[in-house]
Amino acid sequence: MRLRRSAVGWSFALPFAALFAVFLVGPVLASLAMSFTDIRSADVRSPLAVTFLGFDNYVRLFQDEQFVKAAGNTLVVVLLGLPLTVVLGMAAALGLNSGLVRFRAIFRVGYYLPVVTSIVAISVVWRFLLQPDTGLLNSVLGLVGIEGPNWLANTSTALPAVIMMIVWRGIGFQMVIFLAGLQAIPGELYEAARIDGASRWAQFWHVTVPSLRPTLLFVTVIGSIGLLQVFEEPFVMTRGGPLGSTTTVAYSVYSQFSFGNYGYASAMSYVLFLAVVLLSILWFRLLRSDEVG
């Protein structure tokens, strides 16, 4: 009986499991193995000749000041980017879901537009927008009497500028998930709250927020994974500069790969992997509810 049940289960999961094992798990194990060696691009044709290093790559990482700096930058990206995207995405969803708004589809498509765009394409536009003298952003700031900086050339403003773009691209996704979460809340709950004489605020706090907990967990976890792995924005906007101020961990992984240091880059990936796992566990602990997990 148990065997039969397993057979039925696997009949569903097998195509996935097979492809997954070959094309993803295999390469993941290979790169894990590489992380314990000194393999470089020059060795890929004779990989048996590489030296086994044990944890040397991992130890070296934490003495590598560039990596430590990248880790710090990534932390800033998560700490600023996550609350901003979540709060703004949720606010947009609440607004659109309030029943007061016309032409909701237009807003929905408009807010989601940045998500669907190839980032390479849109980064050109952003670099124009962030120009110091002639860029749109600084002209707007000029209207209210603020003299905007040369965003991407300044070590103190480059990372905030990159985060600005990350948030701009992230709001739409969060909004859609929240909208979905809101629409899944049964109307009866609000009905019951109204009968009890609850104000709008009370309804929000006692019906909406608790019902959104699984959604919140989902966007927080997915959002943190995305932000910890942020690579494209700094890559297309600043190449990690100026002075490494926008270098993220994923960007360092990429540059080590380009330099051909496959072993070292793999070790970096697995440290990043660990960070993602730990943060996800933390979120599950903090936000857990029965509907998810």
Partner: peptide
């Protein structure tokens, strides 16, 4: 777990495969 592995890490072995 796979959700959390940076894609860049598997790129080279994937191509060799």
């Amino acid at each position: 777990g796979n959700l959390m592995v940076p894609p860049m890490a598997t790129f080279v072995p994937q191509f060799v495969l």
